[in-house]
Simulated scan of single mutants.
Amino acid sequence: MPMTILIALGSNRRHGRHGTPGRVLRAALAALQQSGGHDIGVTAASSVWITPALGPGGRTYANMAAALETALPPEELLARLHEVEAAFGRRRYRRWGARVLDLDLLAYGEAVRPSRHRWPGTRTRVRAASRALVLPHPEMHRRAFVLGPLLGIAPDWRHPVLGLTVRQMSARLRRPRVSVG
């Protein structure tokens, strides 16, 4: 069975050559496949979702999700994602700021980093030590702008720590919260 590698794509700034944020995302997928010797394939891509900004960024975002196949190890794939971001003009200087392109590695097969026994439950946040790679992405189950596009390409993908499918994580996120007391 092939390994499921999932990424999230986001943009909320026009690009001089590629145009609107939605077009930036499509161009980024093409660039990812063409970078570094054609060793990354896109096996599925969601439609573009327009979502409100998270944090003080203000501008709406175009978001997508994609499934990849590659023989690159996770760290090299992440480095490739960062190279594509940089080629599109991404500068990593301000959290929550407007950006022409944001590429996040959500899942790399069944990989769990840090190890499974160090992953806290869903009530606390997973924080990476310095810039260490955390897999699956520690906030993906809390973000509708990630789960929505994922529903279109991998609804039955199961989170290796939480044990929930994308469909179940999305339903939990949309479920109204009731206050007791």
Rank of each mutant, 00 (worst) to 15 (best):
M1G: 14
M3S: 15
A8E: 04
S11E: 01
R14K: 10
H15D: 12
G16K: 05
G16H: 10
R17P: 01
P21T: 05
L25D: 10
A27S: 13
A30G: 13
L32H: 05
S35D: 13
I40M: 04
I40A: 11
V42K: 03
A44H: 07
A44E: 07
A45V: 10
S47R: 15
V48H: 05
W49H: 14
W49C: 11
T51V: 05
T51N: 10
P52T: 04
A53K: 02
G55I: 03
P56V: 00
T60K: 11
Y61W: 13
A62D: 00
A62W: 01
A66P: 04
L68W: 00
E69K: 12
P73G: 09
P73D: 12
R80K: 08
L81D: 01
A86T: 14
A87P: 06
F88T: 08
G89F: 05
R91E: 14
R92Q: 08
Y93W: 13
R94A: 15
W96E: 03
G97F: 04
A98S: 12
R99V: 11
R99T: 07
R99Y: 09
R99A: 09
L105V: 06
L105G: 08
L106A: 03
A107V: 02
A111N: 00
R113C: 03
P114Y: 01
S115P: 13
R116T: 11
H117F: 11
R118I: 03
R125G: 11
A129E: 11
S130P: 00
L133N: 04
H137R: 07
E139Q: 14
E139H: 13
R143M: 02
A144F: 00
L147D: 02
L147F: 07
G148W: 05
L150V: 06
L151M: 15
R158H: 05
R158Y: 02
P160S: 07
L162H: 13
G163L: 07
T165E: 02
R167N: 07
S170R: 15
R172W: 09
L173C: 06
R174I: 01
R175C: 09
R177P: 01
R177G: 14
V178S: 12
V180I: 15
